[in-house]
Design a protein around this nucleic acid. Structure first.
Length: 393
DNA sequence: TCTGGGGTCCTAGGACCC
DNA sequence: TCTGGGGTCCTAGGACCC
């Protein structure tokens, strides 16, 4: 007799992941408020431990505010190499339980345990087994939500935090979901929450009992339909196994906030070169090229605009990307506008092997591609700092 | 000296084609 | 000389997620 479960989806979410990993090296700090994030200037919180959360500190808060809220907070710089390696080990633990693992980010994944209950017992027991393995091997805690669908499992893991498990059987889905605020639903952020509240829709139950057409008039066809499913827990229950959060990327980009706002064209164009080189380098290591180049500009008042241009041919060449974004920047015709941030993104990525360049007679562009590849080789041997365009030295 | 950086997806209008 | 309709591409913006 094969045990059949009606709650096969597990959502496993590390508790305060970056902070928990950082604290493994600093056990002396576990009882103090600790955040991981960029400490200097304009950084924000990546993760806060539960002591810091008692002061109201949350992810994405500006560090300047955090220091006001909690003056004795300890700020730790993020160490992504360690985060990535802990994440890989945790994902490996997941795959010992089931091959059907859909990673959402470094610290979060869905598991389908339908095929594992005969060997390992009911989902709740599997959840506890995962939690104790991760705790023993990695020294960090996690929370698990167990349900029939992806979004109910995710909401359950959030409710289980920190360091707990919640199972929501099908018969209890509506009594679990309907009292929640609409803002808890996946896809409902600050704006949509406020919009729904203005329509008098405060809880998930309110959304569930609103006619689809009404909902769609408020939030659009797509989101309306989506919300109706989420409100009844009838969203997807099939997972797409994948190792990383975003496997074949559809776009690659880089942006950077200046330490101080600037209106100096030379500084801006140089920053665009640095960002173009970073993006193009990542594209080349991923063996992709892209046609649409987008410039992002954020002004001192935080308003943000984008300008994009689709090239005739896909490229992964630093100077071509840089030339495109510089033209877009100059076309803005900014005079004295102070910029807070600039960004470069390339979209429409395709495998580089599928790109066949139509070189115009007399064109010498391939020289730049050769130069980029020489830079890549030197970077691999000597490190990023060793090789860069002359104007960045 | 409020507000990072990496992404995804949706909407909407205009161009263009059949 | 009275107005269709669908599909695709491009651009810009916005919302959201981790």
């Amino acid at each position: 007799m094969v045990p059949v479960t009606d709650t096969p989806i597990l959502h496993v979410d590390m508790d305060a992941f970056y902070a928990s990993v950082a604290l493994r090296e600093r056990p002396d700090l576990v009882d103090q408020p600790v955040v991981v994030g960029g400490g200097g200037g304009r950084g924000v919180v990546l993760a806060a431990n539960y002591v810091a959360r008692r002061y109201g500190v949350r992810s994405a808060l500006p560090m300047t505010r955090v220091r006001r809220m909690c003056p004795h907070v300890v700020v730790i710089e993020p160490d992504y190499a360690t985060f990535t390696s802990v994440s890989s080990s945790v994902m490996e633990t997941f795959r010992e339980v089931t091959p059907v693992v859909e990673a959402m980010s470094l610290d979060e994944a869905f598991l389908d345990v339908r095929g594992s209950t005969r060997r390992l017992g009911p989902p709740a027991r599997i959840a506890e087994r995962l939690r104790s393995t991760i705790h023993d091997e990695q020294g960090i805690t996690c929370s698990v939500g167990v349900a029939a669908s992806v979004s109910v499992a995710k909401l359950a893991s959030r409710r289980a935090k920190p360091d707990g498990v919640i199972v929501v059987p099908p018969a209890e889905v509506t009594s679990f979901l309907h009292p929640l605020d609409v803002g808890e639903l996946y896809g409902v952020g600050e704006k949509t929450q406020a919009l729904l509240h203005r329509f008098g829709l405060l809880t998930v139950g309110d959304v569930a009992h609103t006619p689809l057409r009404t909902l769609q008039r408020a939030v659009g066809d797509h989101l309306g339909r989506e919300l109706q499913h989420l409100a009844w827990g009838t969203d997807r229950s099939e997972l797409t196994p994948r190792a990383g959060p975003h496997e074949p990327e559809r776009s690659m980009g880089a942006d950077e906030t200046f330490t101080r706002d600037t209106d100096d064209r030379e500084v801006i164009v140089r920053e665009l070169l640095r960002l173009s080189a970073r993006v193009a380098g990542r594209m080349r290591s991923a063996d992709v090229a892209g046609r649409t180049v987008t410039l992002k500009v954020r002004f001192a008042d935080f308003t943000t605009i984008t300008r994009s241009r689709t090239l005739p041919e896909a490229t992964d060449v630093t100077v071509e990307i840089h030339r495109a974004v510089t033209r877009l920047y100059d076309a803005l015709g900014l005079q004295r506008a102070r910029l807070r941030l600039v960004g470069v993104r390339v979209e429409g990525l395709v495998p580089r092997a599928t790109v066949h360049r139509q070189l115009v007679l007399g064109e010498s562009e391939h020289g730049w591609a050769d130069a980029d590849r020489a830079v890549d080789r030197a970077t691999r041997r000597f490190g990023t700092a060793a090789v860069r365009p002359a104007s960045l030295v």
